[in-house]
Amino acid sequence: MLPKGANLQKIREGKRTYAITPHLPGGFIKPEVMQKYVDVSKKYGGTMKLTSAQRIMITGLKAEDIDSVWQELGMQPALGFANCVRSVKICPGIAFCKRGKQDSIKLGLELDRRYIKKEMPSRIKMGVSGCPNSCAEAIIKDVGAIGTDTGWDIYVGGSAGSHPRLADKLIESLNYDDALRVIDIVMRYYQQYADIERIGQFIDRIGWGKFKTDVLAEFYGEKSSAGEPRVPQSEAGDKIVPLPGGLTEGNLVFGDAITADSVISDIIRVYPQTIPIFRSFGMGCLGCPSSAGEPVTKAAAIHGLDLPELLAALNKVVPEKK
C-alpha cells in the first residue's frame, strides 16, 4: 500500500523512495511556508524539485517518514483521485507582466478552487495564459484559456505525452464570467460521456464537430439535435483497431485471457471490470499517457508489483471464452 499522500518514485535494490507534492495554487508560496519545505527536506533527507505544474515536490523520502513530513509541514496530505484535475497552471498576467492582456491569476485561481482534485474520467490539466505568448502552455492543456485584447479564447483537448496533441479553439473573446461558464459546460459534458480518456482522445473519438456543437448549444441556450456520444462495447470475437494515443494500442479480443504482454488501455477498454483491480494494486492513473501503450509486465515492474499475482487477479474477472 502507498503511504498516505505520497507517490512511489523509484525502486533501487528493493528499496522504495516516495515523493509528496503539496498543492500550491498558482505556484504562489509565502517565505515562511518555503522555509518549512527546506527544514523538512533537510531533516528527512529529501530533495526539493520544482514541477511543471508550479508546485514543489519533496522526493527521496522513506515510507515510514511520510506521515511525519506532512505533520511537520502543517499540511493535510494532498489527496485526490488518480484520475482528477491535477493542476491549473497560471502565468503572471496583468498583475505582474507588462505584456499581459487579461487577469490570468484571477481566472486561474477560480478554476483551481472549482476543479482541483475533482474526479474525472482521466487526468486533466488546465492552463491559463494572460496573453497569446501562452506562458502557461494553455495550448497543450486539456482545457486552456488565453487572454487577448478582446477577452478570453478557450481551447480544449491539448496534451503532451507520447502522443502530443494541440488543443482546438472552442470559442473566443469571452468575458470572465462567460469563460468560467463555458469551461464548466466542457467539464460536465466530459464527465458525463467520456471513457477513461483525455479530453483530446474523447474529442477524436466522437468528432470535433459534435463536441463543439453540443457544448456551444448549451452555452447559447440551444438544444443540440445530435444524439449522445456512446462508448462502443466489445462483443465476443470483435477486434478493436489500434489507435496510437487513443483508447487502445493493442489487439486484445473479448474473451481472450490477459497476459503479461497485454496493453493496459486495451485491457480496460475490453474488460472495464478490471479497473478496480488495477486500482487495488495502486495503479490508479489508468488514463495517463504511459498506460496507453504499456504492457502489464512493464507496469508491474515500474510499480514494484508481483506480475503473476496481478495477472491472476485480473483474469479472475475475465469471462471464460466459450
Rank of each mutant, 00 (worst) to 15 (best):
E172V: 11
D153G: 07
I171G: 02
Q192C: 05
N175D: 15
I196R: 07
N133C: 08
D195S: 15
C135M: 02
Y176S: 06
L170V: 05
R198F: 10
E119P: 14
L166R: 12
L109P: 02
S173Y: 10
L180G: 03
I154F: 10
Y176L: 04
G144V: 05
E197C: 07
S129C: 08
P132A: 07
R165D: 01
D149A: 10
G144M: 03
K117M: 08
Y193F: 11
T150R: 14
I185S: 02
P164R: 14
I139Y: 13
A136F: 02
E172Q: 13
M120V: 11
Q192T: 13
K118H: 14
V128H: 02
A160E: 14
D184F: 06
G161E: 00
T150G: 03
A160W: 15
L166N: 12
I139A: 07
M126Q: 02
Y189E: 11
L174S: 06
Q192W: 03
A194N: 08
K117G: 00
A136L: 03
V182D: 00
K118E: 15
Y176I: 09
T148F: 07
I196F: 12
D112E: 14
G151Q: 05
R181E: 12
Y155T: 10
K169M: 08
Q192F: 01
D184V: 05
S162K: 13
E119K: 15
V143D: 00
K169F: 03
G108D: 06
E119F: 11
Q191P: 13
R181M: 10
Y115R: 05
M187T: 00
I124V: 15
R113V: 07
M187Y: 08
G161R: 06
C135V: 04
V156P: 00
I183Q: 01
E172G: 14
G108R: 05
G130D: 12
V182C: 04
K141V: 00
Y176Q: 04
G130Y: 09
I196N: 07
G157E: 04
D178K: 13
P164M: 12
L180N: 06
